[in-house]
């Protein structure tokens, strides 16, 4: 029997029982903008960037499951305008100074903002004060760039079994913490999954920054939409 299908921006997408809309889209190599979703981890629907209209109702495509013959809209102006506004809020809440960031050109936040034509931050900047944690001999934490996707939290807890990272505070005071006064005092290691899941430039390996020249970095070569997984 053929798999059931839904349509995504007019394209027929097959899906299997249990798949979410974004999982089926990725399997069909169709890009839906997202940040906190990583195909290797359980989706939690935090960033709302992957919001689509499913039969006219807005829902996070990383958590919603498709139904047979469902009509899903994603790449439409209404949603892209809202996605751009979400990105602009993320940019002004942190300190995203791309020219000095080792992840520039390989950053999902930046590449997604390019994809959605974010030409300005639009809002007033918060310029928060977020000191670095450079205590660990191999890794650096630059909290200025954290978008609270919590992928490192999930990776450390569910894969590494270490619980090195957590989100503390609520609302605008939410922030990333480690389970000691600084990273060097935790069980964190460069071999951890958590060391390799940050979609922006918070968890950085030392002494390897800027090794890829401008023009040859991941998203210099192809826009993020050309890589359906978005990473």
């Amino acid at each position: 029997m053929n798999n059931p299908t839904f349509t995504l921006d007019g394209k027929t997408i097959p899906f299997t029982e249990g798949q979410t809309i974004i999982q089926a889209a990725i399997a069909a190599s169709v890009y839906i903008p997202h940040l906190c979703f990583n195909p290797e981890f359980k989706a939690h629907g935090s960033c709302k960037l992957c919001t689509v209209k499913a039969n006219g109702r807005k829902t996070a495509s990383c958590t919603a499951q498709p139904q047979p013959d469902m009509i899903v809209e994603s790449n439409i102006q209404e949603l892209n305008d809202e996605r751009r506004a979400l990105l602009q809020m993320l940019f002004v809440e942190g300190n995203h100074f791309c020219p000095s960031c080792e992840m520039s050109g390989q950053c999902q936040l930046q590449a997604t903002a390019y994809e959605l034509n974010m030409m300005s931050p639009h809002f007033d900047h918060f310029f928060p004060d977020r000191p670095l944690d450079a205590s660990h001999p191999e890794y650096l934490l630059d909290f200025n760039r954290c978008i609270l996707c919590s992928l490192c939290v999930q990776a450390s807890r569910d894969v590494d079994g270490k619980n090195v990272f957590a989100l503390a505070g609520r609302g605008i005071n939410s922030h990333l913490i480690v389970n000691a006064s600084q990273l060097a005092e935790t069980g964190f290691s460069g071999d951890d999954k958590a060391a390799h899941v940050c979609p922006v430039g918070v968890i950085l390996k030392k002494r390897v920054g800027f090794v890829v020249p401008v023009g040859q970095r991941k998203y210099d070569l192809l826009p993020i939409s050309a890589l359906a997984k978005g990473d």
């Binding site: 100074f97 020219p99 931050p121 900047h125 977020r130």
Partner: peptide, 18 residues
């Protein structure tokens, strides 16, 4: 027209803001 990082988000000079 705002041209460049500094005009658009403060850029390098804004690194003094904290």
């Amino acid at each position: 027209i705002a041209i460049g990082a500094c005009a658009i988000n403060g850029g390098l000079p804004a690194q003094r803001n904290h």
